[in-house]
Simulated assay, not measured.
Amino acid sequence: MPLFDHLGITVDDLARGITQFDPVMQALGFTRVDAENSVSWQRDDETELILFPAREADTGRHRHGHIGWQHLAFALDSQTEVDRLHAIAVDAGWTVVREPKLYPRFNDRYYASFVEDDSGIRIEFMHNPPRKNAGG
């Protein structure tokens, strides 16, 4: 059983949210399921990400650093995959917050990029391989 069952995210414009999230989620191996007034992406019948439209129009973008959502990190198998997902997101209209690069402040293996959608929702693509054993 997964630790997180699902994550629901509210966006300003559902149609635009689908345009931005769908290529990324499909590239991550999720299957899209449309519902009335929402859309979700599911993987392995265990994990689900759901987009909902805002209940009130023009409530403003999410503001990174304020109380609430900060970002969601997707762990990937390689730096190449980080670069690939970053490019897919940018092509889908996400704004680059930080280009793919190493983050030695986390550790010498941590490679990541950060992007933000039109609603201010931030995601990270990251690769953090285990430290190699000194003895083997």
Rank of each mutant, 00 (worst) to 15 (best):
D58I: 00
T59N: 07
T59A: 04
G60N: 05
G60L: 07
R61M: 15
R63T: 13
R63Y: 01
R63P: 01
H64W: 10
H66M: 13
H66V: 06
I67G: 03
Q70S: 04
H71E: 07
H71Y: 15
H71C: 04
H71V: 11
H71S: 06
A73G: 13
A73Q: 00
A73L: 06
A73M: 14
F74T: 01
F74C: 09
F74H: 02
F74W: 13
F74S: 09
A75K: 11
L76K: 03
L76D: 02
D77R: 10
D77M: 07
S78C: 00
Q79P: 00
Q79S: 03
E81M: 12
E81G: 03
V82F: 07
V82L: 10
V82T: 06
D83N: 14
R84Y: 05
L85H: 14
H86W: 04
A87D: 15
A87L: 10
A87I: 06
A87M: 04
A87Y: 08
I88N: 01
A89P: 02
D91Q: 07
D91P: 06
A92R: 05
G93K: 15
W94M: 10
T95Q: 13
T95A: 08
T95K: 13
V96F: 00
V97H: 03
V97Y: 01
V97E: 15
V97L: 08
P100H: 02
K101H: 07
K101A: 14
L102G: 07
L102R: 02
Y103F: 15
P104M: 01
P104S: 01
R105M: 03
F106D: 14
N107L: 01
N107T: 13
N107G: 11
D108L: 08
R109K: 14
Y111W: 10
A112K: 05
F114R: 06
D117K: 14
D118T: 07
S119R: 11
S119K: 09
S119E: 12
S119N: 13
S119A: 13
G120K: 02
G120C: 11
I121L: 06
R122E: 08
I123N: 06
I123M: 12
I123A: 11
E124A: 02
F125I: 05
F125P: 06
F125V: 09
M126A: 14
M126S: 13
